[in-house]
Amino acid sequence: MRDRRGLSGSDVPFLTRRVREQPAAAHPSSPASAHGRSPLDLSAPASTPAVATGQSRNPLDLSAPSAGRGATAAAQRTPTRPASPEERLYPAPALGELRQLTARDAVVRLNPRQAGVGSLVVTGARGVAWEGADRTTGAQSVHREEIGTPIQTAGNRPLLSFVSRDAVLVLRHARELRRALFIAAEGPMTAVAFAGAGVAVHGSLGAGQRTVLTATRIGSVLELRAESVPADWDDGQIWREFAFTMTVGLGAPLR
């Protein structure tokens, strides 16, 4: 049975993946004695029983081919560089390739150059919410009502905030962002990067729906995705739907 002790109080059990501890037999306490090698002999990596036999491997683990699928023992012994987050992404259109996001074509990605220069300007949003790389969260409405922890960048600008009626994300510091929400008002939303590449999305992708544009930083790229929530939900319900719990800004100045 799944142990949920580590998820106590969390809204995001589906985002949390437990790493099962391997049985003791799969990781002998003394690999040197098990293989007759000196523990400091780095001439060739020792293959663990789990990899060598392919028997005790998690059948759902697709990170490396199993012996049963024709991989050679030599290939298994060759240490491989773990794939970067960007390399593990499935293909998606780049920002500028799609003119409009729909329920069917809901995703575009900003490449590392688009995701690192200037501002991402989102029009047509009634509110934004952010989660920083340090997991602090906050939100602001187009009317400047604010809750949670603001993220101030080195250039004395908030990482994400409204300027006039547009939401502005500072891409020079996008690495301080983990994810963000842009909640549509009534009309369409647009998201435009520095060089003018952009995409539009309707404020509602279906009857009784409201669009929420999510921005997720994945390594050096930024993914924009159009999601839908019931149109009558308030911002609090939308934050909860996306597993946002606003943190208290202890270090923030009093307002």
Binding site: G118, S119, V121, V163, V168
Partner: peptide, 14 residues
């Protein structure tokens, strides 16, 4: 043929 080194002021909106 060459590698150019530069610095730019980030074109942030604000």
């Amino acid at each position: 043929a060459k590698i150019a080194f530069l610095a730019y002021v980030d074109p942030e909106l604000r």
